[in-house]
């Protein structure tokens, strides 16, 4: 008989006992250990993932901040550059304006100086010329000259145009103050008489005539009443010459 039923039962029992024993001592502890390890690994992996996510987030945050900072810096920098540029242009403008003003002022000053110098020179020249002329004429003036002057005065008086003569006459007659005849040197009695005669004759004058001397005239004779004057003098010529020269200079300056 190949099958011994007692042995079959015993072996079945043995097998069941072995199942229990191995379950108790082999599978359970081993599986528990494996589970614990896997759990631990999973925890560690999750932990690592969390840390990684956190790190990523922090990195993103940092990057974001960095970008923000960069932008801010760029904005500030560009603003500062713009401001500096504007300031520079403003300063340059001011400097240019100041320089232009200074230049204009200097040019003006120069022009003024030049003008003044030129005026001074022309004035001096004129003065010198006139002084020389005056001196020469003064030196030359004398009794004979007076005589000639009186003659000329008388002649001019007689040669006056009718309208002019009438104007002068009315002017002289209307005046209350006496008629004054001014000469450089004191006239001799004959001369003064001749002058008086000529005046009275020409102008039909009743008012008294007063004779005065005035060295300003250089050489000449002058008939004045209030507002009217009939004169011949070298000073007059000089004055008209001076006027002519001044006019010429003024024209040239322009």
């Amino acid at each position: 008989m190949l099958i011994d039923w007692f042995t079959v039962g015993a072996q079945a029992l043995n097998f069941l006992i072995l199942v229990w024993l191995l379950k108790r001592f082999l599978y359970k502890p081993i599986l528990n250990a494996i589970d614990a390890r896997e759990k631990r690994i999973a925890t560690e992996l999750a932990d690592a993932d969390a840390k990684k996510a956190e790190a990523l987030q922090e990195r993103n945050e940092f990057q974001h901040k960095n970008e923000e900072f960069d932008q801010q810096r760029k904005a500030l920098f560009s603003k500062a550059t713009d401001e500096a540029q504007a300031e520079r242009e403003k300063l340059l403008d001011e400097a240019r304006q100041a320089a232009a003003a200074l230049l204009a002022k200097r040019q003006e000053t120069l022009r003024n100086d030049e003008h003044n110098l030129w005026q001074e020179i022309s004035r001096r020249t004129r003065q010198e010329v006139f002084a020389i002329a005056r001196k020469t004429l003064t030196d030359l003036a004398g009794a004979n000259l007076e005589e000639r002057m009186v003659a000329v005065f008388v002649r001019r008086l007689s040669e006056l145009a009718a309208a002019e003569k009438a104007l002068l006459t009315t002017g002289l007659k209307a005046s209350v103050s006496p008629v004054t005849v001014r000469t450089t040197f004191e006239l001799s009695s004959t001369q003064s008489a001749a002058v008086e005669d000529a005046i009275r004759e020409t102008l039909d004058l009743e008012t008294p005539i007063r004779f005065e001397t005035s060295p300003d005239l250089i050489a000449g004779i002058e008939l004045t009443t209030n507002g009217h004057k009939l004169a011949w003098s070298i000073a007059d010529y000089l004055v008209s010459l001076k006027h002519g020269v001044d006019g010429l200079l003024a024209e040239r300056e322009r």
Binding site: T7, V8, Q11, F15
Partner: peptide, 14 residues
């Protein structure tokens, strides 16, 4: 023990 039919029968019965 597996060379015995009793053992294998026991296992097969299980």
């Amino acid at each position: 023990p597996t060379g015995s039919l009793s053992t294998t029968a026991a296992l097969a019965l299980c």
